[in-house]
């Protein structure tokens, strides 16, 4: 799914997953400037559309 706009759940999920990767040593895909907080870096990556993760909607029932 490559929608133009992510829902707030998708955004949170992706940021979290990427931040975890970064915190464990993944190389940032953007130039890290002021903040070195993994979440900030992940947000920056998302902003620059280089965040290497995508979303997939799961099926829910009941």
């Amino acid at each position: 799914m490559t929608t133009s706009k992510l829902t707030r759940f998708e955004k949170a999920r992706i940021l979290g997953a990427r931040a975890l990767q970064l915190s464990m040593g993944a190389k940032p895909l953007v130039k890290v400037s002021d903040s070195i907080d993994p979440i900030d870096i992940a947000a920056l990556e998302l902003e620059n559309k280089v965040l290497p993760l995508d979303v997939r909607q799961k099926e829910t029932e009941n």
């Binding site: 759940f9 999920r13 965040l51 290497p52 993760l53 997939r56 799961k58 009941n62």
Partner: peptide
Amino acid sequence: TGIIENIIIGQPIPLGTGSVGVVMKPNK
């Protein structure tokens, strides 16, 4: 597949953030 079942067994629930699956973007 539902919410309650997953709460009972202690897994993340398929709702909100939990309803989103994450995949690696290939060859970005």
